[in-house]
């Protein structure tokens, strides 16, 4: 398989022939996907809010959509970082806000009420995905996993601590008895 990085390796350096299993867990990958989804949605909301308001019959609320876009971008960056769970929590809080806003647009006078309902269902589904991913991450990265051991017998000093104290200090030179 071709790997771009092989092109820049010097002659004697190893080059990838085939790749093996990754340290990324399934939850890590899902979180990454959700993070990129946030970035894409946030960019759309920030740069083209009228597309969103047109689709949902929310004319005149472009400012609100832009604010939500900014929020989505922050959540996306956090979800793509090492603190994925915090990012997912932030996404869930944002999903809640989205749902409240969408529910408010489900009025009979809105000709796009059907689209709003579909969006509500979609946000609900993604919230469930966020929640499941956050739970999986918590389980997979839980420091309580595995055996618990205390290393009370590991001094590292074969002759004991008392002998070790100051053992590296220069030995005092003996003066000849007179």
């Amino acid at each position: 398989m071709f790997h771009f990085s092989n092109l820049v390796r010097s002659k004697g350096d190893p080059k990838i022939i085939s790749t093996g299993p990754s340290s990324l867990t399934s939850a890590d990958r899902l979180a990454r996907g959700l993070g990129w989804f946030s970035i894409a949605l946030g960019t759309l909301e920030l740069l083209a809010p009228h597309r969103v308001t047109n689709a949902l019959g929310m004319h005149g609320r472009e400012g609100l959509v832009r604010t939500y876009g900014l929020r989505e971008l922050f959540a996306g960056v956090m979800t793509l970082s090492v603190e994925k769970r915090a990012g997912l929590m932030s996404r869930m809080a944002g999903d809640g806000l989205d749902m409240v806003t969408l529910a408010g647009e489900l009025r009979p006078s809105n000709p796009r009420a059907g689209t709003v309902l579909a969006a509500l269902v979609m946000v609900g589904g993604i919230t469930a995905l966020d929640y499941m991913c956050a739970q999986d991450l918590k389980a997979q990265h839980d420091p309580r996993r595995g055996r618990k051991r205390l290393y009370t017998d590991r001094s590292g000093f074969p002759k004991g601590i008392t002998a070790a104290k100051g053992a590296a200090l220069p030995k005092p030179t003996r003066t000849a008895a007179t």
């Binding site: 990838i16 093996g20 090492v82």
Partner: peptide, 20 residues
């Protein structure tokens, strides 16, 4: 082998060679 953030893989690579 490092493939990106939190992505380390046990890959098959070519053997190193004497270069200098």
């Amino acid at each position: 082998v490092w493939h990106g953030k939190e992505d380390i893989r046990c890959d098959t690579v070519s053997d190193p060679e004497i270069e200098h």
